[in-house]
């Protein structure tokens, strides 16, 4: 028997897990270094969702400190994920910069080709 209610309440987690696993798969399975970085980005993005989704309360407002608004969503995850996004962007930037340098040195961004070049030496 399928617990539809449970699935409905947790669908955000299923999306998170899907993103996480597909991101990780791309990192592992692809030889192209740019694609790997894309996979890594996807993997990190899934974490943002993991944090943000539980913070949202249905019917809640933004956290405004006023008697008129009794129910509000937790602001902390947003703050955290803002930081995490910055970290993610920085990582991607460093990663891409490395790929540019690798491409300059090796003339390729495919891992297999690059490893072959180094073995020849």
């Amino acid at each position: 028997m399928i617990e539809w209610e449970m699935i409905a309440y947790h669908y955000n987690y299923y999306i998170t897990i899907f993103l996480m696993v597909s991101g990780l798969y791309i990192v592992i399975a692809r030889g192209n270094m740019i694609k790997k970085l894309i996979g890594l980005g996807l993997f990190q993005t899934s974490v943002y969702l993991l944090y943000l989704a539980p913070g949202k309360i249905i019917g809640g407002t933004a956290p405004i400190y006023d008697k008129a608004y009794q129910v509000y969503s937790n602001p902390l995850p947003h703050v955290l994920i803002l930081t995490a996004i910055v970290v993610g962007v920085a990582t991607l930037a460093v990663g891409l910069a490395l790929v540019v340098r690798i491409s300059e040195e090796y003339g390729s961004i495919d891992e297999d080709e690059i490893f072959e070049q180094d073995e020849d030496q």
């Binding site: 993997f43 990582t91 460093v94 990663g95 490395l98 790929v99 340098r101 690798i102 040195e105 690059i114």
Partner: peptide, 17 residues
Amino acid sequence: NRRALLSAYQYLIMGTI
């Protein structure tokens, strides 16, 4: 050595994971 770039890239992938 140019392999430093590769090593850094690999470390970046593993470290981020």
